[in-house]
Computed example of a mutant assay.
Amino acid sequence: MTTSVQMKKLTMIQGINDAMWTMLAEDENVLVMGQDVGVNGGVFRATEGLYEEFGKERIIDTPLAESGIIGTSIGLAVNGFKPIAEMQFFGFIYPAFNQIMTHATRIRQRSMGRYTAPIVIRAPYGAGVKAPEIHSDSVEALFTHMPGIKVVVPSNAYDAKGLLIESINDPNPVLFLEPMRCYRSSRVEVPEEKYTIKLGKAAVRKEGEDISVFTWGAMTIETMKAVEQIEKEQNVSCEVIDLRTLYPMDKDTIAASVQKTGRALIVHEAPATGGVSGEVMSVINDTSFLYLRSPVERVCGFDIPVPVYSLENEYIPSPEKIKNAIQRSISF
């Protein structure tokens, strides 16, 4: 007898909360720690209700000390716990950079496999919510260059829940980046039961024949808007790939898509120089160069910090900029 899966429509923030609730209930070694994650339920309410359900020994309010949050998480992780550490904003992670780079990512190698550091570092990130300086940084490339840590970026509630549960179960440290623009921008059907999404596997959001567009996080939404518009206006068929995991990257899906369409565009809001788009271009060059009909295009943020509110929308890749890049590639 087949049992139907119960579904519910959730925002991304609810999907994240649901994932943590699921794992806290299943495994007593899972802990949540960070600034205001307990009594207040987090600045975005991602941890709302967890303190009341699981108590102060598992939902831990910490001092305002990011290096201390990660340092403590490393100690807990090598002793059998599975800490979920929240950075209140991604731009606040820099004081913890040393702990992540020199300890969390190297524990497995340093101990010759005796210890691992199963830490999930959650961080709201990205521009578009008119936050103050340092609150909107998109510096994921700093961490994809760090062997030993996985970098995950969901774009909707379904992916957020499945990817976060998989990240908590992973024996390696995982940086779980949560695009703030996606927190409450939409609702999607999410299973009530536990499920996982494999890390390192991209999602084909839309199949197409003429150009492959690669993106992640909040830019997936902007890209889908651009594709919908240009396909209505012109006889163009676009394939949209949401990478979801930036490290390890799904090179097979990238190659298969470019070899099908012969054109490629990468969209991300981080600055272009040194951005993850360069690595995607490298994958395309290594696997699919002879399939290309036009140069690979990029639409990225500018090589500046995220600007003040009044200029923020000029900084972020827009559907219009994405459409123009698609047009350049198609008409080359």
Rank of each mutant, 00 (worst) to 15 (best):
R187A: 08
V296K: 03
G91F: 02
V5K: 15
A141N: 11
I121N: 04
Q99Y: 03
V39K: 14
S67K: 11
S282N: 13
T261L: 03
A202N: 06
A157K: 09
T144A: 04
I221Q: 13
E228P: 00
A264E: 07
M33S: 04
Y94G: 02
L246D: 00
E222C: 09
I165F: 05
T105Q: 01
E314L: 14
G49V: 02
P271S: 10
G301V: 03
I70E: 01
Y125T: 00
E48C: 02
R328D: 10
E48M: 11
E228T: 14
M33P: 11
P83W: 10
E193M: 07
Y195P: 08
V32K: 08
V258A: 10
E231R: 04
A25R: 09
K82D: 05
K201T: 12
G278H: 13
C182G: 06
A96V: 08
K8L: 12
M112D: 14
Q327F: 06
E209R: 11
D170S: 15
E192V: 14
A123P: 03
M20S: 05
F289V: 10
K260R: 15
D61W: 07
K130E: 14
K232Q: 15
T273H: 04
I16S: 06
R205M: 15
Q6R: 14
E233V: 00
I221M: 09
V32T: 05
E320I: 12
E26T: 12
V213F: 03
E228K: 15
F143I: 07
K323D: 02
L243V: 10
V78E: 00
E57Q: 12
Q88N: 06
V39Q: 12
Y247I: 11
G262V: 01
H145M: 03
G55M: 05
R122S: 07
P132Q: 09
I119P: 02
T223R: 09
E320F: 01
A203S: 12
M219F: 11
T102D: 02
I168R: 05
D61S: 07
V139P: 05
N79I: 05
L311M: 15
V280Q: 06
D242G: 03
C300L: 01
G71H: 05
P191Y: 11
T72P: 06
L243T: 13
Q88W: 05
T102F: 01
P171R: 01
V213L: 07
V30F: 07
I13K: 14
L177R: 01
S67Q: 13
V276F: 13
V43W: 12
V296W: 02
N313E: 13
V39G: 10
V204W: 06
N40M: 13
G126I: 07
E28N: 15
M1W: 08
G41A: 09
S310R: 13
I165Q: 12
T105W: 00
A19R: 04
R298F: 05
F89V: 04
G91M: 12
E189K: 14
E222N: 14
T72I: 13
G38F: 09
A141R: 10
N324D: 15
S294K: 06
A96D: 01
K323R: 13
S282Q: 12
S167K: 08
S288T: 14
L243C: 10
